[in-house]
Simulated scan of single mutants.
Amino acid sequence: MNQSILFPDLQDWDAQTQSIVFPVQVQGANIECRISLNKLISLSSATVDIGEQDIANKALDLFDDYRFDIEEEVEALIGQEIFDEQGRVVLA
């Protein structure tokens, strides 16, 4: 793992965008990252009912289960300098 890219163990569910929001530190700077529920489901091949009350917990569990894969993909996007218009890394 590139030591100039650090992934703190901080992640939150954003119900409005149906995504997990998490930070990454790149050479001391914080970059917001997001991964959509749809992307999490495609990574895991899980089935999740969007109407479920505990969707946040299920999404966070999927994030934890696939954290290594997500971090690798985010590292690659940062290396290629692929950011959205707000300077975030988004996995949709």
Rank of each mutant, 00 (worst) to 15 (best):
Asn57Asp: 09
Glu73Ile: 14
Ile82Asn: 13
Asp84Ala: 05
Glu71Thr: 14
Gly79Asp: 09
Val90Met: 05
Arg67Pro: 00
Ala56Trp: 07
Leu60Arg: 05
Val90Tyr: 02
Ile78Lys: 04
Lys58Leu: 04
Glu81Met: 11
Asp84His: 02
Gly79Thr: 08
Ala76Leu: 10
Glu72Cys: 15
Ala56Leu: 11
Ile82Lys: 15
Ile70His: 07
Tyr66Gln: 07
Glu81Asp: 14
Phe68Gln: 14
Glu75Phe: 03
Gly87Arg: 12
Glu71Phe: 07
Glu75Tyr: 01
Gln86Ser: 09
Ala76Met: 08
Ile78Ala: 06
Ile78His: 03
Glu85Arg: 11
Glu72Val: 14
Gln86Ile: 01
Leu60Pro: 01
Leu60His: 01
Leu62Arg: 05
Leu62Tyr: 01
Val90Gln: 02
Ile70Val: 11
Leu62Val: 02
Phe68Gly: 11
Gln86Asn: 11
Phe83Gly: 08
Gly87Pro: 04
Val89Gln: 03
Ile78Met: 07
Phe68Arg: 11
Glu85Leu: 11
Glu71Met: 14
Leu62Asp: 00
Ile70Leu: 13
Ile70Met: 11
Val90Pro: 00
Asn57Arg: 09
Glu71Asn: 15
Phe63His: 04
Val90Trp: 01
Leu60Lys: 06
Gln80His: 14
Ala56Asp: 14
Arg67Asp: 05
Glu73Asn: 11
Glu85Asn: 10
Asp61Asn: 05
Gly87Trp: 07
Gln80Ser: 12
Ile70Ala: 10
Lys58Asn: 06
Arg67Gln: 07
Ala59Ile: 08
Glu81His: 12
Gln86Phe: 08
Glu73Met: 13
Gln80Lys: 13
Phe68Asp: 09
Ala59Met: 06
Phe63Trp: 08
Glu73Arg: 12
Glu81Ala: 15
Ile70Lys: 08
Ala59Tyr: 02
Phe83Ser: 10
Glu73Ala: 12
Glu85Ala: 08
Asp84Gly: 04
Arg88Ile: 09
Glu71Gln: 12
Leu77Trp: 07
Tyr66Thr: 05
Val90Ala: 08
Leu62Asn: 03
